[in-house]
Every structure is written in structure tokens, then in C-alpha cells.
Simulated assay, not measured.
Amino acid sequence: MTYTGDVQVGGPTQVRVLDLLEIRKAAVGPMQNNAYLLTCRAVGAQLLIDAADDPDRLLALLQEGTTQLDLVVTTHRHRDHHRALASIVAVTGATVAAGADDADAIAEATDIAVTQRLHDGDTVRVGNVALTVVALRGHTRGSVALAYREPGGRAHLFTGDSLFPGGVGATQGPEAFDQLYADVVERVFDRFDDDTWVYPGHGRDTTLGAEREHLTEWRARGW
């Protein structure tokens, strides 16, 4: 199956095979959250981005890879992105990472320790693969994205609820919007090429090239 990024709750996983990494995308829960399983092709280590909901579906997703799970990265503190976190950790023993400013709220809500508190520019590893943390403040204070760049090739950006096709994520008030817009421009659009593939927390994928021409429109409308 050709990877398109279009997934539905109850539907099949979409799989993308890169040089060093396999990406699996599935949709779970009533808010149709995207969960991404990243597998290092060399050693089989696995990282799950957002144990959002439906632990049975997520455990089945792990089985599609190498069965083990080393790390769960929670992109931000909102409950729909970590409803299954406690169950997944209980079964797999995986460690948990999240943005430093959201870590306490996630730990309190899930009763699961966040052992890696992430900051902008940090490195997260899955086997032989390194991903860069991109802090995108505004949707929540501690929202983070993860960036992977193929050697000599395209970048892949997992943005949680901070960047979607058609705009940045929801914010509470103009100051939060200003912060998120600034971070998305300075830390995403100014750093990455147009062919960068964007994997959001809900819905279909996009590329930075498809969104770049709309930045001034987003700024003017304020959302």
C-alpha cells in the first residue's frame, strides 16, 4: 500500500518505510487521534508518539513492528493524547518523555512518571535513529514536536496539535496564538525545507510547502 497518511479509526495502519526508520500511523479514540509508531530498521527499537486512546489497538500496532516498545513521547498535556499511556506502560515497561513544561501535568493525570523532560533542541533516540525535539509553545506551554531527517534527504516532522493542514493548533487567547505562530514560523518554516512531511496529531498529513504560502493569512486571522 502506498503511504498517503489517511487513516480512520478501526481502519488499517498506514506504513512508510524510510532509509533507517519505519513509520506506522493509526487513528484511535473518539477524537480520531493519530498515533505514530517509529521503528529503527537496524535494531528493532520502537518509539510511540502519543498513546492517545484504545490500548488494545496500540498494542496491536506494536505487534506490527517488532513488539517491543522502548519509549513513549507524549506531545502535550491534553487528555486525548495520553488516555492509553498508563495501560501501554504497564504492559510494555516503556519509559515516557514529554515537554518539560507539560511533564508534571501528564504525570499527575496518568500516574505515570515522565522520566525524560524535553527541551527545544534535545535529541530523542530510537535505536540508531536520532530525532530532534522542537518546542512549539502556545497550544500548551510544553508542546513538543519531533523531527527526523533522512541522511541527505527529506525531513519528517511529528507536530502533535501545534501544526495542521490549514493552520496552527487551537490556542487560548491572542498571546498564546502569538507565541505558537512565532515558534511555528521560526522553529519550523525557517528551519525546514518545503518538502518536509508533517504528521499532525489529528487528521491528514501535509507538507511545509503546501502550507507556507498561507502563513500571512494565518497571522491576519489570528488562529
Rank of each mutant, 00 (worst) to 15 (best):
Q8L: 14
Q8S: 12
G10V: 07
G10P: 02
P12N: 00
L18R: 11
L20N: 06
L21V: 08
E22R: 15
A26E: 09
A26W: 09
A26V: 15
V28S: 07
P30G: 08
M31K: 03
N33Y: 07
L38M: 10
T39Q: 13
V43M: 10
V43F: 07
Q46H: 06
D56T: 13
A60Q: 13
E64Y: 09
G65S: 04
L69C: 03
T74P: 05
H76P: 06
H76A: 03
H76K: 03
H78M: 11
D80R: 02
H81Y: 10
A84Q: 09
L85P: 09
T95Q: 06
A98C: 12
A98F: 00
A100D: 15
A100L: 14
D111G: 10
V114F: 09
T115S: 14
H119S: 14
D120L: 04
D122P: 13
T123P: 12
V126W: 13
G127R: 10
G127F: 07
V129Y: 05
A130I: 05
V134N: 00
L136T: 12
L146Y: 14
Y148C: 09
P151M: 03
R154T: 14
L157N: 01
D161N: 06
S162L: 07
G166P: 07
G169Q: 13
A170C: 11
Q172W: 12
E175C: 04
F177R: 07
D178H: 13
D178C: 05
V184P: 03
E186A: 15
F192G: 10
D193L: 10
D193N: 08
T196G: 02
Y199A: 08
G201F: 01
T207Y: 00
E211K: 11
E213G: 14
W218L: 05
A220K: 08
R221Q: 11
W223V: 06
